[in-house]
Nucleic acid binder design. Structure first.
Lengths: 144, 144
DNA sequence: TTTAGTGCAAAAATTTTGCACATAG
DNA sequence: CTATGTGCAAAATTTTTGCACTAAA
């Protein structure tokens, strides 16, 4: 997900581009880890002291609803956020009978803790994720 | 993940098999959705009134740490839990240079909201998830 | 019999919300 | 100029914890 995509999404949905939001987007761009609200807040307040936690809470909410951020739970009580993977790749439900493929709105990389990958110093290039099974049409056809 | 696997994991780690835990496991077995603590509690307290929320909280914690349950965040403030997919399938970091494949401790199906799949009445048979890139060994070799 | 588990109640922690003022478009 | 956003403070909600008692192994 790129800067322009985020700004466009905000504008298209009637949200304003405030300095606070720009700061948040700047932090999230190019951040490979999932960040808590506090982490986002603290990285900004260094050089931009006039930012409240409340605002960060409100804006991660906005951005998550706009499908800009993935919200993930790593088991401590805090929600964590990361920019979604760029569009332009999709995953599918693939029917083993008719071969039809329906898009699925989920990319594993958005929800995976990148820690193990990073620790192994593995440089990710691409990934595959497909679900195979039988679609409703084929299942009812076969039943006759 | 099957009943026997759960019981074994508990025993092997010195946890006791209490009626409360058995009730919880029964609810989770054969439940395709991710349940909140309250949902688990309420499904049990119908026929087993002597179960406190605290106990459910404690036990989802235990089971998640034992890698029996996946803990997922769907965006409302509540943690949700589901039994992990059965072992016996693994996903990998595959090196595009040397072809080595390292196991990765993450299965997308555990963390995916099954709602869209269910709505489409798609019957899942299997799935693939692999991450491709370059391992550290190959990356340093090439740099020479 | 010993160690772990449970229920109760209270506390902690994160997240949400109401309101008055500020500001982007 | 108008509608949305922000900061502050207070509130709501989920989750955790201390303690005495119970129960599994």
């Amino acid at each position: 997900m790129q800067l322009q995509d985020v700004l466009t999404k905000l504008r298209e949905n009637g949200y304003k581009i405030t300095p606070q939001r720009q700061e948040m987007i700047n932090v999230l761009l190019g951040e490979p880890e999932h960040l808590t609200v506090e982490e986002i807040h603290s990285r900004i307040s260094h050089h931009y002291p006039h930012l409240s936690l409340d605002t960060v809470y409100r804006n991660v909410g906005v951005l998550a609803r706009l499908n800009v951020l993935a919200r993930v739970d790593f088991g401590d009580g805090k929600a964590r956020y990361k920019l979604l993977e760029p569009d332009g790749h999709k995953h599918h439900l693939v029917c083993l009978s008719c071969g039809n493929a329906e898009e699925v709105n989920f990319c594993p990389l958005d929800y995976m803790d990148a820690y193990s990958i990073k620790e192994k110093k593995f440089a990710v290039q691409r990934h595959s994720f497909e679900i195979y099974g039988y679609c409703w049409a084929c299942r009812t056809k076969e039943a006759n």
